Computed example of a mutant assay.
Amino acid sequence: MLQLPSHKLIHDVPTRWNSNYDMLERYLEQQAAIYSALTDKTLKKNIRNIVTSSDADVKIAEEVLQVLKPLKTITTLLSTETTPSVSMILPLKTRILQSMAPSEDDCTVTRDVKAAIRGDLNPRYTAPLIYKTTFIDLLH
């Protein structure tokens, strides 16, 4: 009826790197089905005070998904590498930090998510050895 893929919702799993991204992506994909189910008359008879996502909530979810997309791409890339090199860390870290730069178009939630990611990532991977190995790998 809604012509959506028949997929189950995905839950966040703290030990899985991309589970937040996957969860939001699936929610947005299945949003019409979720709304239809929650507003079905037979369900409403048995449950009171059903809360559905507002348009603003959906817009925030879409924006956060875009913020998380570079992280999904990089973690997928790294997990598929058969021989990842330590010299990949600095360029990828730089790429993530660039994508997390604040923008005038960012809503408050997007700005906060980007700031949290930058704040967590900035102090990481600063050992001189990482810089040396990256430099040496670039020479080869």
Rank of each mutant, 00 (worst) to 15 (best):
M1G: 15
M1T: 14
L2W: 06
L2N: 15
L2Q: 11
L4D: 07
L4C: 12
P5C: 04
S6G: 09
K8W: 11
L9P: 07
I10V: 11
I10G: 02
I10Q: 01
H11F: 14
V13G: 01
T15F: 11
R16I: 09
W17L: 02
S19G: 04
S19P: 02
N20E: 10
N20P: 03
N20F: 11
D22W: 00
E25W: 10
Y27L: 08
L28G: 06
E29S: 13
E29Y: 08
Q30G: 10
A33I: 05
Y35R: 12
Y35P: 01
Y35T: 15
A37K: 14
A37Q: 14
A37V: 10
L38E: 06
L38F: 10
T39A: 08
K41I: 14
K41E: 15
K41R: 14
T42E: 12
T42R: 10
K44G: 15
K44L: 15
K44W: 01
N46P: 08
I47W: 05
N49V: 15
V51H: 04
S54N: 12
S54F: 11
D55M: 12
D55V: 13
D57N: 13
D57M: 09
D57L: 04
V58S: 07
K59E: 14
I60M: 11
A61W: 04
L65A: 09
V67E: 06
V67C: 10
L71A: 07
K72L: 05
I74R: 01
I74P: 00
T75V: 05
T75W: 02
T76K: 12
L77P: 03
L77R: 04
S79F: 12
T80F: 13
T80Q: 15
T83M: 14
T83D: 12
P84G: 10
S85V: 14
V86M: 05
S87T: 07
M88E: 02
I89C: 06
P91L: 06
L92H: 05
L92T: 02
K93Y: 09
T94I: 06
I96L: 11
I96G: 01
L97I: 10
L97M: 10
Q98W: 13
S99M: 08
A101W: 06
A101V: 12
A101M: 11
P102Q: 13
P102F: 13
P102Y: 09
P102S: 10
S103L: 08
S103F: 04
E104K: 15
V109D: 15
V109W: 08
T110S: 09
R111W: 02
D112Y: 01
A115V: 02
A115G: 06
R118L: 12
G119D: 13
D120W: 08
D120V: 07
D120K: 08
L121A: 04
N122C: 13
R124Y: 08
A127H: 11
A127K: 10
P128S: 05
P128I: 04
L129P: 05
Y131P: 07
K132L: 15
L139R: 05
